[in-house]
Design a binder for these strands. Structure first.
Length: 215
DNA sequence: TAGGCCATCTGGTCCT
DNA sequence: AGGACCAGATGGCCTA
């Protein structure tokens, strides 16, 4: 990979792991029949310590582990586990490669200056978000001009900005730092000299229009 | 050397 | 049962 040319942006990725509780499926954590619980996944552990919850969980656990099927030798089991793991690793690697390919494709349509500057993953996502927002604003303004309407552009008005919190789920992409306003996604890009964010009024890419040109 | 970014491995969970 | 998805852990590489 291309290392970050100018140091890392001062943003942090926070994992919002607030997944809805999906029910006691395994019962590893609080039920007797258990494998060592993963330290990473406690939120999904079984909390139904009373009633039938654990019995159901234990039954499912038994089923998952082969149930009444013919017992295999330790060697065969070990071989099978290794084989499955290896296949899973291959799939996972492939999946990540696909993800990176998509990210590269996204980088390819984003205007950066210099052209060979490579955005990091998080920068690419934030940049794309801002870029789409800027293009949307451009289209709206163009429409207003075409029909002779006045551009309302109220302060903090209906349109909002990527940083205004009106961006729905995308808001979760922003680090707490940027959400507090001290570091917008655009600003994070501007911290890297030579890299331009499309929403930056001070950034003009050769051969393209700065966002400020549309305002 | 510390810190950031990344690729990979791994185990858990959900879905088909 | 097997695949997809997810998040934590780990180690390598690079830069300030």
């Amino acid at each position: 990979m291309a290392p970050h040319p100018l140091g890392a942006p001062t943003v942090q990725v926070t994992h919002e792991t607030e997944q809805p509780f999906l029910g006691a499926l395994h019962g590893e954590a609080t039920c007797a029949a258990s494998a060592p619980p993963s330290p990473a996944h406690t939120p999904r552990d079984c909390t139904e310590t009373e009633g039938g919850g654990c019995r159901v969980a234990a039954r499912k656990l038994r089923a998952r582990r082969g149930g009444r099927s013919r017992p295999k030798s330790e060697l065969a089991l070990s071989k099978q586990r290794r084989s499955r793991r290896k296949k899973a690793n291959d799939r996972e690697r492939n999946r990540m490669h696909n993800l990176n390919s998509a990210l590269d494709a996204l980088r390819g349509v984003l205007p950066t200056f210099p052209d060979d500057a490579k955005l990091t993953k998080i920068e690419t996502l934030r940049f794309a978000h801002n870029y789409i927002w800027a293009l949307t604003q451009t289209l709206r303004l163009a429409d207003h001009n075409f029909y002779g309407l006045e551009s309302p552009a109220p302060p903090g008005g209906e349109l909002g900005s990527p940083d205004s919190g009106s961006s729905g789920d995308w808001g979760s992409l922003y680090s707490p730092v940027s959400q507090t306003g001290s570091l917008s996604p655009a600003a994070s890009l501007e911290e890297r000299p030579g890299l331009c964010a499309p929403t930056s009024p001070t950034c003009l890419r050769p051969g393209s229009l700065a966002f400020s040109d549309f305002l």
